[in-house]
Design a binder for these strands. Sequence first.
DNA 1: TATTGACATTGACGTAACGTTAAGGTGTAT
DNA 2: ATACACCTTAACGTTACGTCAATGTCAATA
Lengths: 248, 248
Amino acid sequence: MNYTIKEIANLAGVTTRTLRYYDEIGLLNPAVIGDNGYRYYDQKSLMKLQQILFFRELDVPLNDIQLIVSRPDFNILQALEEHRLSLQEKALRLEKLIETIDNTMETIKGGRSMIAEDYFAGFDESQYKAEARESWGKTSKYAESQKKWASYSKEKKEAIKTEGERLTRRMVSENPAASPDDPDVQAAIGEYLAYINEYFYTCDVDSLRGLADMWVQDPRFAENYNKVRSGGAEFVREAVHIFSDRHK
Amino acid sequence: MNYTIKEIANLAGVTTRTLRYYDEIGLLNPAVIGDNGYRYYDQKSLMKLQQILFFRELDVPLNDIQLIVSRPDFNILQALEEHRLSLQEKALRLEKLIETIDNTMETIKGGRSMIAEDYFAGFDESQYKAEARESWGKTSKYAESQKKWASYSKEKKEAIKTEGERLTRRMVSENPAASPDDPDVQAAIGEYLAYINEYFYTCDVDSLRGLADMWVQDPRFAENYNKVRSGGAEFVREAVHIFSDRHK
DNA sequence: TATTGACATTGACGTAACGTTAAGGTGTAT
DNA sequence: ATACACCTTAACGTTACGTCAATGTCAATA
């Protein structure tokens, strides 16, 4: 089912201006542009917008959000779990601020005294920002890809996305007769590995193997692969295992 | 005791740039500018910065914050209590977001299903923003003064502040022989009433009377008045009561 | 006294993430 | 045809700083 821009904006509690901006920067493109020029969004758009809003809630810059959700190793369940942890930290901070209020009121009323520092307990967000970034930002792997990503133009980002989709279709192989060890499939996997290294981060054969295992679990990938071929996700996993066995 | 800009920035978890900006817009001026041109802040600055940060935490625009804390009816204890309520609302919202995460994960894993709207439960901040603004923004009294305040230049705001201080000193009266019904004191009260109406909001004699009662409780006002004259806050309350009795 | 490093100032340009306005097209009901 | 709600693009503006440059101040040290 498709949503108009106003419908999805209302569902998500954002403005249509925000959604147009996200389209403009390539963060969230509509699923379809109608003949009338209107933007239409689908269920998949909903899921992606939810992720964007969680990252936004945790003060991750939009450009960084785009990178994170674009990376081949983005795992939605893992992401949700980490959002959960970060939101819990935020809640602790709010508790701290409330405690500061109580202490301040008592001090004003003369019942206690506070040192200067205590008036601001809870305001310093740096530790929480670090927390939000921790999984995504603390590794040199991430820093590396962030630097790369930030240097790409909008057009380049678009091209990278297209290239990824093309390689994905080759890895899954639309040819029903193909088997996971098909030469073209294997070649595509090699190219996909190079693609990751080129545009995202340093990735070796073992890491790629781990990714393939993860993709079977992640509904986002599984859905894409299964569109190309029935059982596509398992096909890719098998193919990548073969590839990694041959290139160890 | 005076703090350098770096010291207070570190205490409060903000940057020196933020504090210079706040000085520039007149939101938080330093207590003293040293002979060397350096900004020095005092305990009173700390208290004001705390209030600013609470309002900022609740997404109140800086310009509005300036108005709120400048108004004659700003009461710090009342403010702290309302901040507390708003922060509690924010905490509820975080709980809601965490619940959304849990529901989403369960849905992805196949254990339940969600309607579109539920994917975004908790993101819509409008009700919480309204909450933060409720005490300050829902009354026509506030809207009126907001409109006025927003139209003033920085210089005008500064002049308004200076005028308020001048009238305050006259109301408290530096003359030790003066009594609350002194003609100059009474005249100053009349002018202060006009000042409120001109620059902030519509205020009648009864409201002014209520204000004077509130000022005795609020350490911010009491401290200012007691600097001019010992027992200055009680003096002003008495004087305003006399004024309001005569002008009912 | 000179040097060094930390910290201070002002000035000025830039930025992220939209908000707002204008002009004009689309869809639907009357 | 009309009216209203919603859509589009374009473009300017806003808020709250971040960043950089140039230069002055302070205090410790050689």
